[in-house]
Nucleic acid binder design. Structure first.
Length: 789
DNA sequence: CCCTGGCCGCTTTTT
DNA sequence: GCGGCCAGGG
């Protein structure tokens, strides 16, 4: 019989032969807790997917002694398969399994929606239909889904609203007002931070008040916390942290619910475990308590979210929290060259607080790492843009390049230079699509239609576009609402019944009527029809046009983009499409989720956003003391270690080429600084690097300086490139020879004008245009979005 | 009630 | 350098 067992093991090994030994260890360990310490680029997603596939296809076949299901014929079939003389026949394959699990018994939690989506796609590709039934989602959406079902146990309806940071901010400001807390003495930021930490530790407002004792400031925070929570529940809303701690709360309060999910999720997997915080740990711990089939994947060296509560502790003490846990280290890197890896190892070695591991690779040595010192941030951007253009001329694609920086604001200089030199780019993060005013407004309309008691969002749109309903009226109405225990929307709908509102009653009633109309429409109309009705009835676009805002057209583009998102959502969900579903997806969505990498453009994002991604060529600008590591981190060893981990993440994003840059002078927050090169670049051994520096101060050549003022450039071309979706990509290769001197053209921001000169530059043409009433501007043709008159 | 202009302060990272 | 907030004028 042991023969049979060995044979089966060999078959499985062959079936998963694309995994290395360590990876197989992780794949075959299915029962009991498992910690996978997976270095950057060690194929952890592949392991995760194969492990799930193994769970579903073969269960515990590898370690099981039970071979009862196998026949003598299977034995022969297995031998044939191992010899390579025959493929594995489905019947035999099915009989290999020992206690396989159902797809819906698997829960895979990731950090971003993008990672979840990728996991789903790859699982579907591997397992077909079955792959669809696996729950692969983020902590937040997993919790949201559970709360949609059982939130009533905590006093929420099943269509509660999810507040994003902006909503939370607005709400806290109102709480401050109500409690007479001056923002100067105790800022909303501080309070929200405190609350977030409290929630992470599952400390309720009352607990918090008790702990605050006689401390005046903490007492105020406690009051604000209490008010904030009661306002949230009045509005039937949860903030991001609530999603997690309410889910945990639910499990603690309702053992039947917990048990239901414990039974349902027999196998739990958590990706990026080093980035989990305390509540997330509790959530996972509770779910896994019954069967203890928990597998976490993480890398202590890549823990970069301490600032928002992630504790390295979770990964450090996993073996204590889950006794008997098996530990597997994945140290073979499949991504980067030897040089890049050596650099990364050398940097991270300077951290004291780590589990310790050293990545190695069979990849070639590769190029040395380029360390370039520029004069200024503009010079730095110039250097990058030239390198990219050189690379593209030599056959690379723009999309092979990524620029990863510490702060979003660093993208500005790069944008300007790229616009000028015709490098197509895409920025991830920064001002995100769903954070734009116009988008938030329209989402607020949809939210209020979905849930009229959502006061924060109601307030947002009540005078947007302008309806002559001022702050005073609103707070009066809110007061009445509070005194009679009705919602703000109720009071507005019955404005004529309240004496103090008499004067503005017609306006309020008109608004309430508008919303009520839309609500009734929402029960029958399709999502996009509803959206178009909102636009029509509010005259949103018309009012926007009237405002003659510089960026009105950009905003209208965004509004239309949202329409296509709605249609997309309808197409993806078919019969199951609901307004609520859309709103939920939107509230948990970020830009990075939308990065598909299919369009040929250089990608720019923060190092944080880049976690989990990889690129053939990576630029890391701003390696300077005071920038990276940042000023706030420099004097705290623990903080420096966190920054160093970020450096490690950044370096290991690169597959083939890595360029690290610093500038001798840099304009930051309005003033010029002279920063020393970062300690992190100094930690890379000399023999791995190729140093260079800008040789002499060159006068800005014509065209180097942006020909339009920063304000104008933002509204015109730059914002265009920041757009969501493929439409937002700047396209450099349109034919530009169609512009001739003397042509009349129209520019979005500058209006009508005439071309004075056209000078070909690279792929593009530099146009000098005399605009009526604005003066003469120099603009690159590809980015000007000119229309001929 | 709405708009503007000036002043202030902040300025990391994200679900 | 920017955006948020407030005060003052239309």
């Amino acid at each position: 019989m042991s023969n049979m067992m060995e044979l089966r093991q060999k078959v499985l090994e062959k079936n998963f032969s694309r995994m290395n030994q360590r990876q197989q260890e992780a794949v075959f360990h299915v029962n009991g807790p498992l910690l996978i310490l997976a270095g950057a680029g060690s194929g952890k997603t592949t392991v995760l997917i194969n492990r799930i596939a193994n769970l579903i296809r073969f269960g515990n076949a590898y370690h099981s002694q039970n071979t009862a299901s196998l026949t003598e014929e299977d034995c022969a079939a297995m031998e044939a398969y191992i010899n390579g003389s025959a493929p594995l026949e489905p019947g035999t394959k099915a009989r290999l399994a020992v206690n396989p699990c159902q797809p819906w018994q698997v829960l895979a939690i990731t950090f971003t929606n993008k990672a979840a989506g990728e996991l789903k796609d790859r699982l579907e590709a591997m397992l077909g239909e079955e792959g669809r039934d696996i729950w692969a989602s983020t902590f937040h959406s997993t919790c949201a889904r559970i709360l949609r079902r059982y939130g009533d146990r905590l006093g929420f309806t099943n269509h509660f609203t999810i507040y994003d940071t902006d909503d939370s901010r607005r709400l806290m400001k109102e709480c401050q007002k109500a409690l007479n807390i001056e923002d100067k003495s105790l800022s909303y930021k501080t309070i929200l931070n405190e609350i977030s930490h409290a929630k992470d530790r599952m400390i309720s407002p009352d607990d918090y008040a008790n702990a605050a004792g006689a401390d005046f400031r903490l007492g105020l925070v406690a009051k604000a916390y209490k008010l904030y929570q009661s306002r949230l529940s009045e509005a039937d809303a949860m903030d991001f942290d609530d999603l997690l701690c309410n889910a945990v709360q639910l499990f603690l309060k309702c053992p039947d619910v917990l048990e239901y999910y414990q039974n349902r999720f027999r196998y739990i997997m958590v990706d990026e475990y080093q980035d989990t915080n305390h509540v997330q740990y509790l959530f996972v711990k509770l779910l896994a308590e019954k069967y203890k089939n928990i597998c976490v994947v993480g890398d202590d060296d890549q823990s970069i979210y301490k600032f928002r509560g992630a504790t390295i502790e979770n990964i450090m003490s996993f073996e204590k929290s889950f006794p008997g846990a098996k530990l597997v280290r994945l140290e073979q890197n499949y991504r980067s060259t030897k040089n890049i890896l050596a650099a990364a190892n050398a940097v991270i070695e300077n951290n004291l607080e780590r589990k310790g591991k050293t990545l190695w690779t069979e990849n070639p040595e590769g190029e040395k790492i380029a360390l370039h010192t520029a004069f200024s941030e503009a010079d730095e951007a110039d250097y990058i843009s030239k390198k990219i253009l050189d690379g593209v001329a030599a056959g690379k694609k723009y999309a092979d390049y990524a620029i990863l920086y510490r702060m979003n604001s660093q993208s500005n200089t790069l944008e300007k230079v790229f616009v000028k030199s015709g490098v197509p780019y895409r920025i991830i993060g920064g001002l995100r699509f769903y954070e734009r005013k116009e988008i938030k407004d329209l989402i607020a309309y949809l939210s209020v239609i979905n849930n009229p008691s959502d006061e924060i969002r109601l307030r947002r749109i009540i005078n947007q576009p302008k309806r002559s309903i001022g702050d005073k009226t609103i707070s009066q109405a809110a007061e009445i609402a509070a005194s009679i225990g009705e919602s703000l929307f109720y009071v507005i709908s019955h404005a004529d019944e309240f004496e103090p509102l008499k004067r503005t009653a017609p306006k309020l009633l008109a608004f309430a009527g508008l919303i009520n109309q839309l609500i009734s429409l929402s029960s029958t109309a399709r999502l996009n029809e509803l959206y178009q009705a909102i636009l029509m009835k509010t005259q949103y676009i018309e009012k926007l046009k009237e405002s003659e805002n510089d960026d009105a057209q950009d905003r209208i583009d965004n509004i239309n983009e949202l329409a296509s998102n709605l249609i997309q959502y309808e197409e993806n969900n078919g019969e199951d499409t609901t307004l609520e579903g859309f709103l939920e997806e939107v509230s948990l969505m970020t830009d990075i989720d939308n990065y598909d990498g299919n369009t040929d453009a250089v990608v720019m994002m923060t190092m944080h956003s880049a976690k989990g991604l990889e690129f053939p060529c990576v630029f890391l600008p701003g390696f300077e003391e005071g920038i990276f590591p940042g000023v706030q981190a420099i004097y705290t060893p623990g903080e420096v270690e966190e920054e160093r981990r970020l450096a490690y993440v950044a370096i290991t994003r690169a597959r083939e080429e890595l360029t690290i840059l610093n500038a001798e002078s840099r304009m930051i927050f309005g003033s010029t600084n002279h920063n020393k090169a970062s300690r992190f670049s100094a930690e890379i051994p000399e023999e791995l690097v190729n140093k260079s520096r800008a040789r002499e101060w060159k006068k800005p050549i014509p065209g180097t300086v942006l020909p339009v003022s920063s304000h104008e450039s933002r509204s015109a071309s730059v914002n265009a490139a920041r757009h969501f979706g493929p439409a937002g990509i700047s396209q450099p290769h349109k034919p530009t020879d169609s512009y001739r001197v003397g042509d009349s053209v129209r520019h979005k921001a500058f209006g009508a004008g005439m071309i004075l000169s056209a000078t070909p530059m690279g792929n593009d043409t530099l146009l000098e245009i005399a605009f009526d009433g604005v003066g003469t501007k120099k603009i690159m043709a590809n980015f000007a979005r000119l229309t001929k008159e």
